[in-house]
Design a protein around this nucleic acid. Structure first.
Lengths: 299, 299
DNA sequence: TTGTAGGCGTTATCAT
DNA sequence: ATGATAACGCCTACAA
């Protein structure tokens, strides 16, 4: 009977059930920066995990925080059960907007704190410390921290960990050069170009993400004639596929997206079960150092 | 009054309107292969365009055709108005499944033909011919066609165009080497490694996509000591961001995603207006050759 | 066990 | 013009 109905093109309609139960089993996924392969992979895994939990993904692509407000209104009118977002921005306005929705919000790598908001973070600070340790072990005397956008909390934490690690190991902070990029390949290339113009020759670089690290590797070779790792060692973050491409062979911290997604799903389930009481938890996943050729000592 | 309501957390509910009108203003977006930056960008643009048209994106990530069937059932029960998909697979089963949904389906670069199914294609064949012309102009004597998966219609069309172009220009087909990959970086690397083991030294390669081309460039250098473009020129397809990265500097055909998305939106609008009559249109967008260093003659 | 009524929140229509 | 009511489709609860 059901089979017969199906062959006639009949499909059960979930819409009335949404009205009755107040649960749509749709989760708003708010994401941006898909040009970074890391986020593309994260979305892929997240979408898969949500579907396996019987949840649908109502996708909202946002370029900047500005479009977020109107985006949220649209999502809300579809009675989504929760929101999952990888947005790096963390302004007060956004926190208030998200908290007011009165539905669970799960963030990736954000510093958002407030009622209804849970977060799953990579251990950014710890990875920064580990990067410092590795850099010191390899005898780096002229370290560089290549930061991402200042509003990116994850990037800040990585930089703070790196600085603390260096300081503890006895590196004078005057010896550390800080550069700022915007997480793109070009900004990594440009940052190194600026360094070159200032006459600084680094021998160890920790980059806030892999795309900038790739740009840095290319600029070091083209601008300064410095070959990685012969003249300079480099570490990135995210372990994007391109880090494994032979031309870069980049050592990188893997955020272990699988675990972060699993963690996000747990936070989500908890919050959904709690129903109307605002939950606010945090889950931290240690990053895993993937060593490749860019930090291999040569003699 | 409305403002007061909003501050109290009230949001209009679109769910009842769906029941009444039969239109949800949700579009199912079925996509896979996000590890290819080309698809990530396409999704980004598509999601933005749909939102600007007042449509919501109900995302369905699928790895293979197998998950498609159950995925469709889930989507359908949410009463989506249409489906947009970039799935490259084109089996008869899939066509029947999609046609039976009785809602508009818009495909990217697929060979699916049937009622309710419209398609927006890159001019794959034309680009293949153009690649052949360029390769002949540059005096290539040992051309290689690096194909994608056989079931990928777009890749087949590119290869056919390339072969036809070479033949018309007088290249004997026995002189053409065909390799098969699966659209990944590794498969490009491996394909060239196989070539090396067969003792063939190519001097011109057309790759079905950029990721394989990057793998090919790296394998040529590492395995054969061939430098691009000094010893071998290479063309790719998709113009992904990495094609512009200095280590690859890859000439590539840009599919002009913007135009393809615009075309898809037009097909979608048409089909939605036509309401209950199955439309089946095709829209072709010429690819644009972006010449970079990988095809620059050196002397 | 089988059948029927009520309710979800909005919109549109109809009656006042 | 303003206000009441039916309708959307499914599920649940209660009645026969």
């Amino acid at each position: 009977m059901l089979a017969a109905a199906a062959s006639l093109g009949y499909r059960p309609n979930r819409i009335p059930a949404i009205m009755l139960s107040g649960r749509s089993y749709m989760v708003g996924v708010v994401i941006g920066g898909l040009e970074n392969p890391f986020y593309a992979t994260a979305l892929e895994r997240l979408a898969t995990a949500l579907r396996e939990s019987g949840l649908q993904v109502l996708l909202m692509y946002v370029d900047d925080a500005l479009t977020l407000d109107s985006a949220l209104d649209q999502l809300l009118s579809y009675r989504i059960d929760a929101i999952v977002t990888s947005l790096a921005i963390g302004s007060k306005t956004v926190v208030r907007a998200l908290s007011q929705l009165q539905i669970p919000v799960v963030c990736f790598n954000s510093s958002l704190v407030g009622p209804w908001i849970s977060t799953v973070n990579s251990n950014n600070h710890g990875a920064g410390v580990a990067a410092a340790r590795l850099v010191m072990e390899r005898g780096v005397t002229q370290p560089v921290w290549l930061a991402g956008p200042g509003k990116n909390a994850a990037s800040r934490a990585r930089g703070e960990g790196f600085c603390q690690g260096l300081r503890k190991a006895g590196m004078p902070m005057t010896g550390l050069t800080r550069l700022r990029g915007d997480d793109t390949y070009d900004s990594g290339y440009d940052a190194i170009t600026r360094l070159w113009k200032r006459g600084i020759r680094p021998n160890g670089i920790f980059s806030s993400n892999d795309m900038m690290a790739c740009g840095a590797i290319d600029a070091l070779r083209e601008r300064m004639g410095l070959i990685c790792p012969r003249d300079v060692i480099i570490l990135g973050y995210d372990n994007i596929p391109q880090a494994g491409w032979r031309s870069y062979d980049l050592t990188s911290f893997d955020q272990r997206t699988e675990r972060m997604v699993t963690g996000a799903m747990e936070l989500l389930d908890e919050a959904l079960v709690a129903k109307d009481s605002p939950l606010s938890r945090t889950h931290v996943v240690d990053a895993q150092l993937i060593e490749r050729g860019s930090t291999t000592l040569t003699d």
